[in-house]
């Protein structure tokens, strides 16, 4: 609350407008929220997906900003820990299940032949990181033994995994992936030892490994794009901790020259005033906007190019925020999903 008061007057109220709220009454803890395009009876709509530890629900929009639950998939054996959005894909929800690490990746879908909801197993093992790619593909990194495996699988409309191929793995463990926007075959990843790697997904080649630098600790890549011969990467620092040289970093926009493997910081987004010190950030990036839940239960929004916080959403009367994700666009406006542990999800227009 103190931090919100330190923002320019009216910023909080003007930046995020509550549009609607939905409440999942699942008995277990809410773990993730996302959006998916879903087509039924010839009508294609942007739907919301909510995940609890033991179930995943699909919600379709109704008039007057209300939501109706379409279906709930039950997943009793292993807890759900993450939704893996599949860009440009309709009628498919991809989820990760596990304890501390991903043990399974499953697809949730509605079978077009029988019109029945079902699920199918895509991968199992000790998976460190996974990302849904454009063109109905999924990349994941795992370490079944000493050697790391980075694998891309194509998914069919019926949920089966089709041909898969491997990418040349770096020695360091890959902890996050991001597609390079505008370049279909370029993929980047960040590693546990502060490196950024670039692959050619088509050929499986590892093109470059570049050190991010210790000024940018434990980076998780969220978004990458190429512009004027440079590779720009938005990274977050989940374990944000105040340091003398960099303050309290939350997100950085970094620029790399892949030709020379040199890089530098372009803009830095720090924790808002009143939220310094050790933090755990759970964040998401869309375009130039970043959002994260701070340890205090407040959601903060940053403009990565400006490098400062533009909105704060303090905990409400019902409690702290636990999750936040940017929604896929259904219009020109940007929508932020904000979830609480009890399954309440609020949609805010930014």
């Amino acid at each position: 609350h103190q931090a919100a008061e330190q923002l320019p007057a009216g910023l909080r109220e003007e930046s995020l407008q509550l549009v609607s709220e939905l409440k999942d009454s699942c008995s277990s803890c809410a773990v993730d929220v996302s959006t998916v395009w879903w087509e039924a009876a010839g009508c294609r709509e942007l739907c919301v997906v909510t995940a609890c530890e033991s179930s995943v629900s699909l919600w379709k929009p109704l008039p007057s900003d209300c939501w109706s639950k379409v279906h709930t998939w039950q997943l009793a054996e292993i807890p759900v820990i993450q939704i893996l959005p599949l860009p440009d894909t309709c009628n498919l929800v991809c989820i990760a299940l596990g304890e501390l690490e991903i043990a399974e990746i499953r697809l949730l879908l509605c079978s077009p032949e029988t019109d029945s909801f079902r699920q199918s197993l895509v991968r199992s093992g000790t998976i460190k990181a996974a990302l849904g790619l454009r063109g109905r593909r999924l990349v994941s990194s795992s370490r079944p033994g000493q050697e790391q495996q980075v694998e891309v699988v194509s998914l069919s409309e019926t949920g089966r995994s089709k041909d898969g191929h491997t990418l040349l793995p770096p020695e360091e463990t890959v902890v996050a992936f991001a597609e390079v926007e505008g370049m279909r075959d370029a993929l980047v990843g960040t590693t546990a030892l502060n490196s950024l790697v670039i692959w050619n997904v088509q050929t499986g080649q590892l093109l470059r490994k570049m050190h991010v630098g210790y000024s940018y600790p434990a980076p998780i890549c969220h978004r990458a794009y190429s512009d004027s011969g440079l590779l720009f990467v938005a990274v977050s620092h989940p374990h944000g901790e105040e340091s003398e040289c960099s303050g309290s970093p939350a997100f950085h926009l970094l620029a790399f020259n892949p030709s020379t493997a040199r890089g530098k910081g372009v803009a830095s987004s720090s924790l808002p005033a009143g939220h310094t010190g050790r933090q755990y950030l759970e964040g998401d990036v869309k375009d130039t906007l970043a959002a994260a839940v701070l340890s205090s239960g407040t959601i903060a929004v940053w403009d990565l190019l400006l490098g400062h916080c533009t909105a704060l959403l303090p905990p409400g009367p019902a409690g702290s925020w636990a999750l936040t994700r940017w929604a896929s666009s259904s219009s020109t406006s940007t929508c932020l999903l904000a979830g609480q542990r009890d399954g309440t999800v609020c949609l805010y227009r930014y």
Binding site: N200, T203, L207, S226, G229, N257, S259, R262, K264
Partner: peptide, 23 residues
């Protein structure tokens, strides 16, 4: 960001690195 910071920039970096990297 400029070439003085990051070295010579190539617009075709992806194709060039793909041609150089081991298969």
């Amino acid at each position: 960001c400029s070439e003085s910071d990051l070295g010579p920039i190539s617009l075709n970096w992806f194709e060039e690195l793909s041609a150089e990297a081991p298969p």
